[in-house]
C-alpha cells in the first residue's frame, strides 16, 4: 500500500496560542460589526415593529458573549497546559461521537503547506477573475494546466489531454445539454467564445 501521510513538522506556534488568536479574531470581528452596525444597514426604518438591526444585534451580542468565553477558556487552557495541544473541555458531545481528527491533532503550520494553500487559492481566484475577461474555454484550459503543474503533475499526456477533455465535456454538457450561458470574455476572446459556443 502507498504511504498515507506526509512527514510532519513541528508546529511553529503551539495549538493553545493559535486557539487564543482565533478567539481574539472572532471577538474583534463581532465587536467591530456590533459597534459599526448602523453603517452596514441602509434603507427604511420605523416601518415595522422590529427594526432591521434587531436580529443582527441579537446575533452579534450573542457572538461577543460566546467568543469572549472562548477567549477566556483558550487563555486558561494555555496557562494550564503550557504548549500542550488540548482543546477546551466545554462539553464535547459524547465519546460515541467522533472528535474531528484534524482538530484534535491541530493544524500543521509549515511554510511549504502554507505556500501550497496560498498557491491553490491564488490559482482559483485567478480562474474566477479570468472567466469574465478571457471567457470560459481559455480560462479553464489555462487553469487546468496551471493547477496540474502546481500539484505536481508532470506527465505531458495528462497536462495536455486532461484540460482539453474536461473543457470539451463541460462545454458540451453545459452549453448544449443544459443550455447554460457560460462566460465568453471580452474583445478577441468574446469572438473566439462565440465561435465555440
Amino acid at each position: 500500500m502507498a504511504e498515507q501521510q506526509a512527514p510532519q513538522e513541528r508546529p511553529r506556534f503551539p495549538r493553545s496560542r493559535q486557539e487564543i488568536a482565533v478567539a481574539a479574531v472572532f471577538l474583534v470581528v463581532f465587536v467591530f460589526f456590533r459597534v459599526r452596525l448602523d453603517s452596514f444597514i441602509a434603507g427604511r426604518r420605523g416601518a415595522t415593529f422590529i427594526e432591521p438591526d434587531f436580529w443582527p444585534t441579537v446575533l452579534l451580542t450573542f457572538g461577543i458573549a460566546v467568543s469572549a468565553l472562548y477567549l477566556v477558556r483558550a487563555v486558561v487552557n494555555a496557562v494550564r497546559d503550557g504548549s500542550q495541544a488540548t482543546p477546551p473541555d466545554d462539553g464535547a458531545a459524547t465519546d460515541l461521537l467522533p472528535r474531528d481528527a484534524e482538530a484534535a491533532s491541530g493544524p500543521e503550520s509549515s511554510r511549504g503547506n502554507l505556500l501550497a494553500l496560498a498557491g491553490g487559492l491564488a490559482l482559483l481566484a485567478a480562474y474566477i477573475f479570468g472567466l469574465r475577461v478571457i471567457g470560459f474555454a481559455p480560462s479553464t484550459l489555462v487553469f487546468c494546466v496551471a493547477f496540474l503543474l502546481f500539484v505536481g503533475e508532470r506527465k505531458p499526456a495528462v497536462l495536455i489531454g486532461f484540460p482539453l477533455v474536461i473543457t470539451a465535456v463541460v462545454l458540451g454538457v453545459f452549453t448544449r445539454l443544459l443550455v447554460v450561458p457560460l462566460p465568453r470574455g471580452v474583445g478577441v476572446f468574446l469572438q473566439l467564445s462565440t465561435y465555440l459556443y
Partner: peptide
C-alpha cells in the same frame, strides 16, 4: 463533535 462553544460560534456566523 468537538466543542460546544465552537459549534455555537459557527452557528452564529452562519446566521449572520
Amino acid at each position: 463533535s468537538g466543542s460546544l462553544i465552537k459549534a455555537l460560534l459557527a452557528g452564529t456566523l452562519g446566521l449572520l
